[in-house]
Amino acid sequence: MEGTEEWKTQLEAWKNQLEKWLNQGIEYSQQIPPIQLYAAITILLFTTLLLLLIRVFKRVKSSTIVLTGLSGSGKTVIFYQLRDGSSHEGTVTSMEPNEDTFVLHSETAKRAKIKPVHLVDVPGHARLRPKLDEFLPQAAGIVFVVDAVEFLLNCRAASEYLYDILTKASVVKKKIPVLILCNKTDKVTAHSKEFIRKQMEKEIDKLRASRSAISEADIANDFTLGVAGEAFSFSHCYNKVTVAEASGLTGEISQVEQFIREYIKP
């Protein structure tokens, strides 16, 4: 009996105290100009939104791989090998990019949840090259496919295309890694990747001379490649450039998959 009485007065005291604090709080908040209050709230919202956006963008950006190269180098075959593990009935010259988001075929057997890859195959026909610019800004990696069998015929055209890619502002600024993929190695007449790398370096070296002459006037948007006064080597690039081999037709594409997974962690 006595205990409850005591407890009651205690409660009363707390209540009074609380009420006092509450009043103080309200009074205090009324002293703050409303603008400041709104500003605080806006900032809070803004930062959370920004953080969310950054996360979203990061995810989108980092899962795109762009397949590029001259027409006939075997991009579309590789695209379907990566996706379905088969080149189906074969391919013809592409008129539009192929684009899909998927888990690599070789990984579908694995249990764990794997991050899908957004793969884009941009046709090599010169008239369709402007399409490439749409995809490069979001690329996490570029696979430049080269026909290793008909290489000498195409060396100059391929080097020129690669040069254009390596000097694009969108590629240089983000240091997008580039893989030069020597395709069709199932054929015995295919050139080795070392040979191809050397030849392309030589070609680009020549291109550099003629192109840098052109670009003198507008240094702002054209990047010159390599170290001045030294023979060009891919190791001089701002981007990491590596060379690998594959055969799209027979499905030997493990080196591409390795490249993809290096930059898009599963």
């Binding site: 579309t76 379907y80 009935e89 391919t91 013809v92 010259t93 592409s94 008129m95 192929n98 046709p123």
Partner: peptide, 23 residues
């Protein structure tokens, strides 16, 4: 497809084309 994947080809006709007319 416009992307360049052959979906169906007539196997009955099957004789290989000379050159590359489609490309």
């Amino acid at each position: 497809t416009r992307g360049g994947l052959i979906l169906w080809a007539c196997k009955e006709l099957g004789n290989a084309l000379k050159g590359s007319p489609i490309d």
